[in-house]
Design a protein around this nucleic acid. Structure first.
Length: 256
DNA sequence: ATGCCGGGTCCTACCCGA
């Protein structure tokens, strides 16, 4: 079984990239973030023609997540439980499929809106931890993938890519991410590549990709039984070299 | 240290991303 996560930075700008990725890699599931449209503008028919169902949580202009699947999907949650009203952006989709719980997440960046914006990011991560703790308590196979907007360790940000006070590398952000791992989740990339650069994002500016000034912020986390089934992880860097690429690339995991 | 890119929308100057 293959599952991938990809922040596409607008599905309308990137539908052809997604189309080609599905044709080439044929993942069972593809978790998309930053589709940047409302659900009715999502190009569902294009992907249906390739054999993929879609579940979409959209909003106008910003954010938005969607899951494409070759298998039937059952929606469990369209927003993160316990999040305060007014912070209910389209950032969370929880599904059941093939005996798994699948979660697609787009964590707030936390750099805009001053300290209140940063606090909202931490609140989101805290509610996410509570939700994952409850699901892990049910002892179901669980995978969460998405753009977590956290570089977990120093080696996950290229030297000079970010200021020390950036919301992606602040100690509080890293602590919130570690808390997810301490629930019993496995970071799929680090399970198979314990150290070294494994970037998933390169800024559009300053020739960041050419200079390999990247960040590792897109993650796939696995519950214990799924971690035992982990066979392969591929960060699809070639996607960043495409014409009009997203600034993020897919992270593709293979499970027995 | 960002707003040099590149999406978006109140259609065009400005917001947002990481």
């Amino acid at each position: 079984m293959q599952l991938a996560t990809w922040n596409v930075n607008s599905i309308r700008a990137r539908h052809r990239h997604v189309h080609h990725f599905l044709e080439r890699r044929e993942p069972d599931f593809l978790l998309l973030q930053e589709i940047k449209c409302e659900a009715d503008a999502f190009p569902e028919q294009e992907f249906k023609a390739l054999g993929y169902h879609a579940e979409v949580v959209g909003q106008k202009a910003y954010n938005g997540v969607a899951v494409l699947a070759r298998h039937p999907l059952e929606v469990r949650q369209r927003r993160l439980p316990r999040l305060k009203e007014g912070t209910g952006d389209a950032r969370y989709l929880e599904l059941a499929a093939k005996g798994l719980v699948l979660i697609d997440v787009y964590v707030p960046n936390g750099n805009s809106g001053g300290e209140a914006g940063f606090a909202a990011k931490l609140a989101f991560l805290s509610h996410l931890a509570e939700r994952l703790d409850a699901l892990l308590g049910e002892d179901q196979p669980l995978l969460i993938g998405g753009d977590f907007n956290v570089c977990p360790a120093d080696e996950d940000a290229a030297p000079g890519a970010l200021a020390p006070e950036d919301a992606l590398v602040r100690p509080e952000s890293r602590a919130a991410f570690r808390r997810l791992l301490w629930l019993g989740l496995t970071d799929a990339v680090r399970a198979l590549q314990p150290s070294g650069a494994a970037y998933t994002f390169w800024d559009y500016q300053g020739a960041a990709f050419d200079r390999d000034v990247g960040l590792r912020i897109d993650h796939v986390l696995l519950s214990p039984t799924l971690a035992e089934r982990l066979k392969k992880v591929e960060i699809c860097r070639a996607e960043r070299a495409a014409e009009q690429p997203s600034d993020h690339v897919p992270v593709l995991v293979s499970l027995d």
